[in-house]
Each structure stands twice: as structure tokens, then as C-alpha cells.
């Protein structure tokens, strides 16, 4: 899989810590018990020493049916074969391993064993150095900063994930998205039949500046019953970093203009989420057609914009702290 190789190279860039590096190869799972017994033993030593044992404990916690990690309540049959609760509901009271009646027996011992385990985040190979108790690992993984990004292309459901350089290449090569360098832009959006909003028109352009990538979305949709056009920017990276940037969008004509200034949202927030929170330049169609001039039959919008880096003023405690828009 080329996705894996992509991830691998990015790890090399991020990981400069020798310990983490080793961790990655051993894929350690360390028991808490061992840890407290010998405080000086670091994770790696424990991992290499106990590798056969911990690996098999880890295997014990894999559901034999779906191979996912099992979380309480963990079930077992009369013969002691274990099963996760999701699969238990699907096997019609018959143990998938021995075909005997399953019954309703909980495997508390295994749950306790799981509780004592500490495991590395599954995004370890992408650079996450963190180790978690078994039950909080799952929660972390859904918000881990190293988790891969989803493809920001909004038109069709694209399931590709990866890191930012990979996704930029993917957008360019597979979605044929226009790439631009520089922090200012000037785009014309022309649509010959703007009354047909049903076939939602949208466009994506990628900008490369300050060593980062930004997605400019432009689209037509119905806001409630009102046809509108909307333009907004998303930052290809994490939210904390997105807040270092600002952008402006301007559209107008015939003595009127509308200017939006905002902070780009991270591509972690889906295109739809940003759109539905109205966090961008929204132009009512009436006004858009007025800006277009002519006979109002054709949409001709010129959107100009700029991206800039927020001045580091966090010491003053001024506008630097921007709460997240939910």
C-alpha cells in the first residue's frame, strides 16, 4: 500500500527521539504491574524483555470474530472462549469458536487484565509518542494530533486519508485541483445559468504560502430556502496552527462590496461543518447577481483575497485566543 510508505517517510521527519523510534518497531504493550515494580525500567526495556508475553496478552484481547480490541463487557462461553459484546449480539447464542451454547457469562478476569495494560497510540507510526491505559487509548486515538487527515475534496465522498503532503499530491493528481503559490488571489467565478442551484456548483483551489497549504472553497447552495454563494478557507493542518493565520475575501461591484475577514478552519473540520456554521463569506444570490452586472442572467463574481500570518501578540493577551467554533 502506498499509503503506508507515505506514512513511513513522514515518521522519519517527525521522530528524532531514539526511544520513540525503538518503540515503534517493538510495538510495545507494557503491563502496569511491571512498571510499578521497577521504576527505573523504561518502556523500551520492558517492551523488549516482555515482548512474547505482552504480545500474547494483546492477542487475547482481540475478538476472535471481528479482530477488534475488546472492551467491557467482554463475554465468554462455558468453555472459556472470549467474544466482544458487539459480536455476541450477532452470533445467536452460539460460541463461534466451539459451537456450544454461549450463555451469558462475563469475563471479568480479562477485563481486569486489560485494565492493567498500557498501550501505545495506534498512530505511533505517524509520530505519536504517547502511551495510554488500555481503556483511554481509544478515546485518545479519535483526537490524536497525529491521526491522518481526510481528503478535503468536497464533491464526492473521497475516503482517502493521509498526511498533508500526501493529500496535496492526491488533490493535484487525482482530483485535478488547481494549485496556486502566493498569499493573494483573484478568482473569477462564472456560471451561465445561476438559477439552477439544484446541481450544487462548487470549486476547490489550493494555495501554497508560508510553507503551508490552504483550501479555498466556493460553492452555491440553499441556505434554508434562500439561494446563496459561499466562499471560505480551510487550513491544511491542525486547528492550533490554523489560528496563526488570517484571511480576507472580498467581492463587489457597482458601488457595493462585501469583505469577510476570518481565521481559516482546520481541514479536521469537515467542509460541511464549516459551511453549516456559516463561517465564511456568504453572498445572497440577489446581491451576487447585482455584483455580476449585466442582465442578471449570468453569474460573474470576482473574489479577491489574501492570507496573512497573525502577528505574535499572545503576550498581550489580545485577540490571540480564539475559541473554537463548534
Amino acid at each position: 500500500m502506498d499509503l503506508d510508505s507515505m506514512d513511513c517517510t513522514s515518521t522519519m521527519d517527525v521522530t528524532d527521539d531514539e526511544e520513540i523510534h525503538q518503540d515503534r518497531h517493538s510495538y510495545a504493550s507494557v503491563s502496569k504491574h511491571h512498571h510499578t515494580n521497577n521504576n527505573t525500567t523504561n518502556v523500551n526495556a520492558a517492551a523488549s524483555g516482555l515482548l512474547p508475553t505482552t504480545t500474547s496478552v494483546h492477542e487475547l484481547l482481540e475478538c476472535p470474530v471481528c479482530t477488534n480490541s475488546m472492551y467491557p463487557p467482554i463475554h465468554q462461553c462455558h468453555n472459556g472462549h472470549t467474544l466482544c459484546s458487539t459480536c455476541k449480539a450477532r452470533v445467536h447464542n452460539r460460541c463461534p469458536t466451539c459451537r456450544q451454547e454461549l450463555g451469558d457469562i462475563r469475563c471479568l478476569a480479562l477485563e481486569k487484565v486489560a485494565e492493567s495494560l498500557e498501550l501505545p497510540c495506534k498512530h505511533m507510526s505517524l509520530g505519536c509518542p504517547e502511551i495510554f491505559p488500555y481503556y483511554s487509548k481509544l478515546k485518545h486515538e479519535t483526537v490524536c494530533n497525529f491521526r491522518p487527515y481526510s481528503c478535503p475534496y468536497a464533491g464526492s465522498e473521497c475516503s482517502v486519508t493521509g498526511d498533508i503532503p500526501f493529500l496535496v499530491a492526491h488533490l493535484r493528481d487525482d482530483h485535478k485541483v488547481d494549485m496556486h503559490s502566493g498569499c493573494t488571489f483573484n478568482h473569477r467565478y462564472v456560471k451561465s445559468n445561476p438559477r439552477e442551484v439544484e446541481n450544487a456548483t462548487w470549486m476547490l483551489t489550493v494555495f501554497h504560502c508560508f510553507g503551508q497549504y490552504f483550501c479555498l472553497h466556493f460553492e452555491a447552495f440553499q441556505l434554508g430556502m434562500a439561494p446563496v454563494y459561499m466562499a471560505f478557507l480551510r487550513f491544511m493542518g491542525d486547528e492550533t496552527e490554523a489560528r496563526n493565520y488570517n484571511y480576507s475575501l472580498e467581492v463587489g461591484g457597482y458601488g457595493r462590496k462585501l469583505i469577510w475577514e476570518g481565521t481559516p478552519r482546520s481541514v479536521r473540520d469537515s467542509h460541511r461543518k464549516v459551511r453549516d456554521s456559516h463561517d465564511g463569506l456568504i453572498i445572497q444570490r440577489n446581491m451576487a447577481l447585482f455584483f455580476s452586472g449585466g442582465d442578471r442572467k449570468e453569474l460573474k463574481l470576482r473574489v479577491t483575497g489574501r492570507i496573512w500570518k497573525e502577528q505574535q501578540q499572545s503576550g498581550e493577551g489580545g485577540g490571540a485566543c480564539i475559541p473554537n467554533l463548534s
Partner: peptide
């Protein structure tokens, strides 16, 4: 009008 790091400006006749 604005807030939360965003600002919307209208200029008209």
C-alpha cells in the same frame, strides 16, 4: 460587524 476573530464589512451606497 464581528467577533471571535471574524469580521464582516459591507460597503454600499
Amino acid at each position: 460587524v464581528g467577533g471571535n476573530g471574524r469580521k464582516l464589512t459591507w460597503q454600499g451606497v
